[in-house]
Computed example of a mutant assay.
Amino acid sequence: MTRCTVLASSWLLAMTAACAKSPSHDRAGFVLPGADFFPEGITTTRDGSFFVGSVRTGAILRRGPGSRQFDVFVSGGDPAVRQVQTAEGLLVDEASGVLWVCDGGAPPSHPSAVLGLSLQDGHTVVRHPFPEREAFCNDLTMDDEGALYASDSFAPRILRVAALDKLVNAKAVVWATDRRWEVMPGEYGLNGLAYLQGNVYAVHTQHNELFRIPLTPQGTAGESVAVSLDRPLTRPDGIEIAADGSLLIVESGANRLVRAELQGDRGAISVLATGFEGPTTFALFADSAWVVEGQLDHLADQKPRLPFRIVRQVLDGALVSP
């Protein structure tokens, strides 16, 4: 996501220009209720239940398989008492019966954390706060053993919760750090995460880069590698693994969904779709990418183009699982 406190920066002007120049897009997908929801994260179950979180209210909505509407899974409300402060990255863990949520928090009373919510009724099962209060949990991924990884957009680090510790209240621990991940005050650094074949991939929104961090057999992080792309990304945000092993990435600064085809630590970028309204991230389900139009560039002025939408982008069969 994009940090609310920098909405008046030169980046906002560039973002606004990009929105104005983008071609119109097929608006098929889901409509979200409310004028102040400002969606950010999205995830799905295997049977097609969708969960969408609000960066504005902390609410999380659920849309069951075959349903035509979203129901409240976790309510928002008064920041002093609400269960989730800001719902960024979401990740379904059906084996554990948990919906994992990156809660950006509201320091100092509500530090950033990875929350585990029951998939049955949304109550909080477990909480993994970040070690320091000046932090921002932004996105999540999970490895083959079930360990969780969370990006910190305010600091140059990725945190980890071991598989055996997931359902125990304990702090998330710093798993990887790199000076190249530093972020300027008022900006967002590390953002979207994805796991593929023993590696965690991470994008850096401010630096427009993609990194690969290998996972050792002991569960520690190897030395991070900057993936050499044939062109820089444009404020990358959400990232997912396609069925063919390529990476699909939202470029929030260009309102588009792109594909990174990797050969070792080199990659070629191609555009899959353009014309989204302030996209943040997406989920892969059936034959499509379901792209969240968060419109976070309108958080300050409170003038989004309503209604908020999840836009369905049908993909080539090689990119999605059957």
Rank of each mutant, 00 (worst) to 15 (best):
D237F: 10
E209A: 13
L117D: 02
F285Q: 03
E132N: 14
G41R: 00
L257Q: 04
R160N: 05
G104L: 03
V292C: 06
P185Q: 13
G245S: 12
E209F: 07
S67I: 02
Q197P: 01
V31C: 04
C137S: 14
L167F: 02
T220Q: 13
D93S: 06
E94C: 10
G53E: 01
H110S: 13
N138D: 14
D244L: 08
G278T: 11
G53F: 00
T2H: 13
H298T: 11
T44Q: 06
R56I: 00
A162F: 01
T5Q: 14
L262R: 08
W175R: 05
G53T: 00
S54F: 02
D287T: 01
A318E: 13
P79A: 06
N208L: 06
G58Y: 02
I310P: 00
V311M: 04
L7F: 10
S252T: 14
K303R: 15
C137K: 00
V161E: 04
A283Y: 02
Q263M: 13
L159M: 12
R180E: 14
G64I: 05
Q69A: 14
A318Y: 00
T2C: 07
V183G: 06
P65N: 12
L115H: 08
Y149P: 05
S153T: 12
V72L: 12
R62Q: 13
L117H: 02
I310H: 00
A163C: 04
A162C: 02
G267M: 09
C19L: 15
L233V: 06
W181T: 08
A155E: 14
D244V: 09
V114S: 01
V101W: 00
P279E: 06
D36K: 07
I158T: 03
S9G: 12
V225G: 02
R157G: 02
A18T: 04
F154L: 15
A87L: 04
E223D: 13
L159S: 03
L12A: 15
G186I: 09
F154M: 12
R180V: 05
R212S: 10
V168K: 14
D178C: 07
R312K: 14
D230G: 10
L193N: 04
F30V: 03
D230I: 08
V52L: 07
A226I: 10
A176T: 06
V292I: 15
A18K: 08
Y149L: 05
V174H: 00
V98R: 02
E209W: 04
F136L: 14
G29S: 03
S22W: 09
D165N: 09
R212Y: 01
M142Q: 14
G267D: 07
D144P: 02
E145W: 09
G89Y: 00
D143H: 05
L262V: 12
Q302F: 11
E261V: 15
T281K: 05
S54Q: 07
Q302H: 12
N169S: 11
A176E: 07
F73Y: 15
D316Q: 11
V126N: 04
R231P: 01
G122Q: 07
R160L: 03
G192C: 08
